[in-house]
Write a protein that binds this DNA or RNA. Sequence first.
DNA 1: CTTCATAATGACACAGGGTGTCATAAGGTG
DNA 2: CACCTTATGACACCCTGTGTCATTATGAAG
Lengths: 201, 201
Amino acid sequence: MPLQDPRPSGIRSAGRPVTIDPDAIASLALRLFAEHGYERTSMEDIARGAGIGRKSLYRYFSSKADLIWGGMEPVIAASGLALEVARDAREDSGDLLAGLRAAAVAGVAVIPDLSVSRGRLRLIAEHPELASRSYESLAPQRERARRHLIGLGVPEETAGYLSAAYLAATFEAWMRWAAGTDPDPVPYLLAAVEVLRVPGA
Amino acid sequence: MPLQDPRPSGIRSAGRPVTIDPDAIASLALRLFAEHGYERTSMEDIARGAGIGRKSLYRYFSSKADLIWGGMEPVIAASGLALEVARDAREDSGDLLAGLRAAAVAGVAVIPDLSVSRGRLRLIAEHPELASRSYESLAPQRERARRHLIGLGVPEETAGYLSAAYLAATFEAWMRWAAGTDPDPVPYLLAAVEVLRVPGA
DNA sequence: CTTCATAATGACACAGGGTGTCATAAGGTG
DNA sequence: CACCTTATGACACCCTGTGTCATTATGAAG
């Protein structure tokens, strides 16, 4: 399997070492998009700008949208991790949504530079093609939220609706934060979760 | 403007009459998709099957996804109309979500054949590419829901989160209904709205 | 019936996204 | 130095989506 994990980040023993820095390329792409527009910037342009071939570009980013969404992955991952942690500390069984709240907020902490994320999200907001990708990019997150809720005793159907609504609302919160100039996205995220309720309780 | 409204449905006075039946083509496409798979069926295949050119096909369906989502438009439109109606009958100000509930259910009534819609939705569910299009296809609906809520006195930010969550939950409801065999989608839709709350009240 | 205006139709060409194949290059390891 | 592993990119595809433009079919006007 020659092309399995483009970014192994593990130790290697032999073979030609990597010369391409994915982060640098994503950063370059973000700049080009901001400069010339998203759809007017072709993958060819980005590859040329990075001094590599188009195929090599596709090895690191499986799609054009991935150049943008890839940067959000740490946030999503951290948010997912928070749900696992919340399971252990669910002794305060009063609020079934506490876990979701914590998960939504947890993503914020791992963002190194909020202004870069804001740029990314603004780009996403401007292009429905990119925004709609939230459905795919956040699918694992939705599944985690669903399982979390089921683990808390929420009926399966309800958990499905809640997790879908949760992701849509928090995504909207990120969009609203990105559209403005407030430094802290947390209040937006908390307000978004306020819109949810667990029918049983 | 030669290509403005592909399906005027109004009266025309002169010119070559239409010989293509969009509904028949959408139906054919649905059959081909079910038979050979969505991505393995090219627009070329569909055009050939319909006995027309690929370009003519694009005149009636602006994208491949539109072949599927186009059939959901009556549902979306009816749902939107229900929100307008709900505004007039909002004397029962006890339940701010009554309008959304009515709108969600209103779409069901205009579906001529539920089994066809189920087929469409199953196809959508199986292909993330199609499912993610819900974001774009339902955008006008989200905007209408947002305005509706604002008209009811809900704060703007809350209305944004609520409408996003509302659409995601009801879309999930349609997906769950489509995945099963129950004849009536209404209970699913009502259960989905149960997941929402208006923070103020 | 002839002519004209109108609108549908599709042939052609093109840009761009995404994929597979495969020869080559580059650098560590022995 | 020889070898071996792996990154790299050149090449060739297919498909979606769009623009242009000549052609065709039809109803309406004369």
